[in-house]
C-alpha cells in the first residue's frame, strides 16, 4: 500500500502522458489539459508545506539560539508582512491604521513562536498573541482606509506589495546576479591555467572568443580573431552542443522510462 500504489500511479500516468503525445484527438487533449491543472493545483497546496518548513527551521534557530538567530525574525517578519500586503488594498490615499494592523499581525506570530519556545510561559505569550489578533481584527473591521481581499487579485497591485518588490527584491536579485561579473573574473583568473592539454584548449578558446569583443585588441590581432571566434562558436561549439543535446535526450528518455516502469525508485528512497 505504502510503496505499491505510488509505483502504480507513476506507471499509469506516465504511460498515459507518453502515449498522449501521439494522439491529437480532442478527448486526449482534454484529459492532458486537465492533468496539467492537477500539477498546478498540487503545487499550490505544496507551498503550504514549504512555508511550514521555513517556519520550523527558523523557530528551531531561535529556540537553540544558534548564531545569527536574530535574523530569523527578519525572515519571518518579512514573510508575514509580504503576505499581508498581498491581501490588502487601500481604498484611497489615506493609510489609516494599516501599518499598525501589519505590526499587530507580525507581533502576534512572534508571540506564538515565543509561546512555543518558552513552554513555561506559554499561556502568557499565547494570551498576548490573542490580544494582538483581536486588535488586528478590530482595526480591520473599523478602519475604512483599507480592506482585505482574499478572493480577488487586487492585492497584487497594492502599493506596499509592489513597492517591496520593486525596491527591495529587485535590487537584491539584480545585485546578486551582477556578482557574477566578479565571480567570472575570479574563476577565470584561478582556473584558466595551462595545466594540461584539455585545460589549455579551454583557456585558448575562451581567450579568443573574449578578445573578439574588444576593439582595442582587434587592430593588433587582425580580423582573424573575430572570424576565428565566430568559427569556434559555430563549429566546435556546435558539435559539442549537438553531442550533449542528443546524449542528454537519451539520458532523459532512459531515466524517465526507468521511473515509469518502476525499475528506478530512487525518488522514493528505494533504489
Amino acid at each position: 500500500m505504502k510503496r505499491q500504489i505510488p509505483v502504480l500511479l507513476v506507471f499509469a500516468f506516465g504511460v498515459f502522458t507518453l502515449f498522449q503525445f501521439f494522439v491529437p484527438h480532442e478527448s486526449s487533449e482534454w484529459v492532458y489539459e486537465f492533468l496539467l491543472d492537477w500539477i498546478l493545483i498540487i503545487g499550490v497546496f505544496a507551498m503550504a508545506v514549504g512555508i511550514w518548513s521555513l517556519f520550523r527551521v527558523s523557530v528551531e534557530k531561535i529556540k537553540t539560539r544558534k548564531s545569527g538567530w536574530g535574523y530569523s525574525y527578519i525572515t519571518l517578519g518579512s514573510l508575514i508582512a509580504m503576505m499581508v500586503f498581498g491581501f490588502t488594498v487601500r481604498n484611497g490615499e489615506a493609510w489609516g491604521w494599516f501599518f499598525a494592523f501589519v505590526a499587530a499581525i507580525v507581533l502576534a506570530v512572534f508571540l506564538v513562536i515565543q509561546a512555543v519556545i518558552d513552554r513555561g510561559k506559554a499561556y502568557l505569550f499565547a494570551g498576548l498573541a490573542g490580544l494582538c489578533v483581536a486588535a488586528a481584527v478590530v482595526m480591520a473591521a473599523l478602519d475604512p482606509a483599507w480592506s482585505i481581499h482574499f478572493q480577488t487579485a487586487e492585492g497584487l497591485q497594492s502599493t506596499m506589495f509592489r513597492a517591496v518588490f520593486d525596491y527591495t527584491l529587485i535590487p537584491i536579485f539584480a545585485t546578486m546576479f551582477s556578482l557574477l561579473a566578479f565571480f567570472i573574473a575570479s574563476a577565470a583568473y584561478r582556473a584558466f591555467r595551462a595545466r594540461n592539454l584539455m585545460a589549455t584548449l579551454l583557456l585558448l578558446a575562451a581567450l579568443i572568443v573574449m578578445s573578439r569583443f574588444n576593439p582595442f585588441l582587434q587592430p593588433i590581432l587582425g580580423e582573424y580573431v573575430a572570424k576565428t571566434s565566430n568559427w569556434l562558436m559555430n563549429v566546435p561549439n556546435m558539435a559539442a552542443q549537438r553531442a550533449i543535446i542528443m546524449g542528454v535526450g537519451l539520458g532523459i528518455a532512459a531515466t524517465a522510462l526507468k521511473v515509469v516502469l518502476g525499475i528506478e525508485r530512487g525518488y522514493m528512497g528505494k533504489g
Partner: peptide, 11 residues
C-alpha cells in the same frame, strides 16, 4: 571538442 566548445561558451 567538448573542451573547446566549453571554453568558447565561457568566453
Amino acid at each position: 571538442i567538448l573542451m573547446i566548445g566549453f571554453g568558447a561558451s565561457f568566453g
